[in-house]
Simulated assay, not measured.
Amino acid sequence: MKHVVVGGTGRIGSQVVAKLTAAGHEALPAAPSTGVDIITGKGLDQALEGAEVVTNLANSPTFDEASLDFFRTSMDNLLAAGERAGVKHQVVLSIVGVDQVPQLDYYRAKTLQEQLLRQGPTPYSIVRATQFFEFMDSVLAWTSDNGTVRLPTTRLQPMAAADVVEGVVEVATRTPLQGIRNIAGPDVFALDDLGRITLAAEHDDRIVVTDDTAGMFAAVSGDALIAGPDAHLAGTHYREWIRDHAAAGA
């Protein structure tokens, strides 16, 4: 089966391509570096020729209001090119709780992407994942200043990127869901506590100060980013992952 992985050279996409290939599928990455531009449409028809499944892992270069145009244009182009090519399954990676945080431009943009996919001509699947373990250092950097890191108590259920890859591949190689699958890590944390766990494991002397106005996740209320009882839970625990990750980087 031929799979085209849009964004197939990125953190998740490259692993999805490798895993699909190892399973015996023909898996081709589609990205600017392979001659495919999902905004202008350049190279899309050639890339999708003969493809049965398109897995869209492309990400907006910004997280502001411009992300709305990125996801609108790219989704329209992918759906049109997929229909011309006779693609039988369109898969998109999205975010758990994405439609519950309209205060964030990026989340509104991803919600729009999901809506366009559902309204499109091709059977589809939406994989909603929680925040990646690998992004914690970036989250800490957003509000770090003079030896302190300010973080809200927002509840998260993060997961390892490798487990996201597993979830995406499982969905992409099966019958279209015509709906959403939520995937998440096994543990729930308050973000400020998650920051303390991370800094301790990395032997980082910065101190976490609880501040419910700090950073992007301050806009999230309640359990919007918690996967819920229907989620498929991955097996990798953050405390074990960050311990091994920190040791490997030592």
Rank of each mutant, 00 (worst) to 15 (best):
L225S: 06
A201N: 04
V149K: 02
E65Y: 05
G185E: 14
I39L: 03
A219R: 04
A218R: 01
Q115L: 05
D163M: 02
A23R: 12
V168C: 15
P61T: 07
V139H: 10
D212R: 02
A30D: 12
P186W: 01
G35R: 03
A22F: 01
H232M: 06
T55L: 12
A224R: 08
T148W: 04
K42C: 08
P121G: 10
D244T: 09
S67K: 00
A234I: 00
A201D: 06
P158E: 13
G7V: 09
P176W: 00
A214F: 07
I197C: 08
P102L: 11
D205E: 14
T122Q: 09
V87G: 05
A214N: 01
P152C: 01
G120P: 07
R128Q: 10
A184T: 05
V171L: 08
Y106P: 14
D105A: 15
K88S: 07
A250L: 02
T148I: 11
K88M: 05
P186E: 07
F133R: 06
Q115G: 13
G179R: 07
T111G: 06
F189V: 10
A58S: 11
R11W: 12
D212Q: 13
F189E: 08
R196V: 00
N56F: 15
S94K: 09
T122G: 05
L156H: 10
D211C: 01
V6P: 13
H237Q: 08
R243T: 13
M1S: 07
D45C: 01
G43V: 07
L112W: 09
L199H: 02
A172F: 11
